[in-house]
Design a protein around this nucleic acid. Structure first.
Length: 271
DNA sequence: TCCCAGGTGTCGC
DNA sequence: GCGACACATGGG
């Protein structure tokens, strides 16, 4: 596979807090190799300069997963509306929004609540090894059968009942994640928010990272703190107001802006 | 020991 | 609608 210059940065994309099952396996002088999962397939992706090579899955799968069909140059042009985002676009050039499996994304971000990424990564790994087929992230049918006590033993804490009930809802068909694809953004939000553990922030993550809804805008503690400082002189502004502001300020691709701002907000911390 | 983590659900006003 | 609080757990 060949990518245009500055069009895609594999490492930045995979280490920006969208996915939690990819690991860097080797570092070459001019590039890097990551190993992870695309749906139920184990994949290894290497980037050497502008060259991207793939093992384990088709180039089409990889292209879709990393949204290489999205015109990043045009998206960047549209959201480049102020000095803060302008600097972030320069600094994190090639960062893309991934298209994940809806269930894995939903489950992952339910577990992300009041958590940190290091521990979240460990929780997801534990679940995959214990309940997934060949290490793949466990299907909802599998998790629905696991007792709350056992899930707590995996370190999920108070999130255990959320995940179990969510798995039951998806497995039973009362939360049809695939059928949901036809819904418009707000309908999709309302539908997904019925799942226990999915609230105003997590639902934005699912829309953005699994359903390709570029106008979704998750506001977490990092984005919240930073945006209040950058755009509101640290005035009291609710998360909802920040989302409204972002939608007007950055436009229909505000979700992409969010990811660049998130990386900026977190810079200086271990990712 | 204290503080924090890519929040949510619930309650009171 | 907003603010306060509980909720488990591990790392810094």
């Amino acid at each position: 596979m060949f990518c245009r210059k500055f069009d895609f940065d594999l490492a930045r994309t995979l280490t920006s807090g969208q996915v939690f099952r990819w690991r860097e396996v080797s570092v070459a002088s001019q590039g890097s190799t990551f190993s992870g999962w695309i749906g139920a397939n184990r994949a290894e992706v290497t980037q050497q300069g502008q060259q991207v090579t793939v093992r384990g899955v088709s180039a089409e799968h990889v292209s879709h997963f990393f949204a290489l069909d999205s015109d990043l140059k045009e998206i960047a042009r549209q959201i480049d509306v102020d000095p803060v985002i302008h600097a972030a676009l320069q600094r994190y050039r090639g960062l893309r929004i991934i298209r994940q499996d809806p269930w894995e994304c939903t489950a992952s971000f339910i577990l992300s609540s009041f958590n940190n990424i290091l521990r979240l990564t460990g929780m997801i790994e534990t679940l995959s090894l214990r309940f997934g087929d060949q290490g793949v992230f466990p299907r909802p049918e599998a998790l629905a059968k696991v007792s709350e006590r056992v899930l707590r033993n995996c370190g999920l804490g108070f999130r255990a009942p959320y995940l179990k009930t969510a798995a039951q809802a998806v497995a039973s068909g009362s939360a049809p994640l695939e059928d949901c694809r036809r819904l418009e953004d707000d309908e999709l939000r309302r539908s997904l928010c019925k799942i226990p553990g999915v609230g105003e922030k997590v639902v934005e993550c699912i829309l953005l990272f699994a359903y390709g809804r570029a106008a979704a805008f998750p506001v977490d503690v990092w984005i919240g703190r930073s945006m209040r400082a950058w755009y509101f002189r640290n005035r009291k502004v609710t998360d909802r107001q920040l989302r409204e502001f972002a939608r007007k300020h950055f436009g229909p691709y505000c979700g992409w802006a969010q990811q660049y701002l998130y990386c900026t907000a977190r810079s200086g911390t271990n990712e």
